[in-house]
């Protein structure tokens, strides 16, 4: 397991093709994740993500067609709160950590795009 995971060379994981992450793809991901990455980071991350994905893609080797996915570690359902108002934060507390505030509101830079 260790040697396999350590293997940073070309992918030798049998039939499974692992996509190579390009610089462009890293740039796209950074855009989705709102990270203004630098040019040199693009290269570094492209290389590192490739190695990591190469390794983690092993999960694909497990034939798991009829295996249900697990999203939660505890098998609990129906956890609800009663519809009763609870004290929250005061306006001062809410705004205390704000980088900027105005008229008791959070002041943010102008927004370019319409709401999704």
């Amino acid at each position: 397991m260790l040697d396999r995971a350590r293997d940073t060379g070309k992918n030798d994981q049998g039939a499974r093709a692992v996509p190579t992450i390009s610089r462009d793809e890293v740039a796209h991901l950074a855009g989705l994740a709102r990270l203004a990455v630098t040019e040199s980071e693009l290269d570094t991350f492209a290389g590192q993500l490739d190695v990591i994905l190469d390794s983690v893609a092993r999960v694909g080797e497990v034939a798991a067609e009829d295996i249900p996915p697990t999203s939660h570690a505890v098998p609990v359902t129906n956890v609800f709160r009663s519809d009763v108002v609870r004290p929250g934060l005061s306006q001062e507390q809410a705004l205390a950590g704000a980088p900027a505030a105005e008229e008791n509101r959070f002041r943010v830079p102008r927004i370019l795009n319409e709401e999704a």
Partner: peptide, 28 residues
């Protein structure tokens, strides 16, 4: 600068390399 730009610049400056790496891996 717009809110979108400020978000990206802040996240770029505020997160270290490992956090950024994992955010991008997870986004992918």
């Amino acid at each position: 600068r717009s809110a979108e730009e400020v978000m990206s610049l802040t996240r770029e400056a505020g997160f270290g390399p490992e956090v950024k790496r994992r955010i991008m891996l997870g986004t992918y």
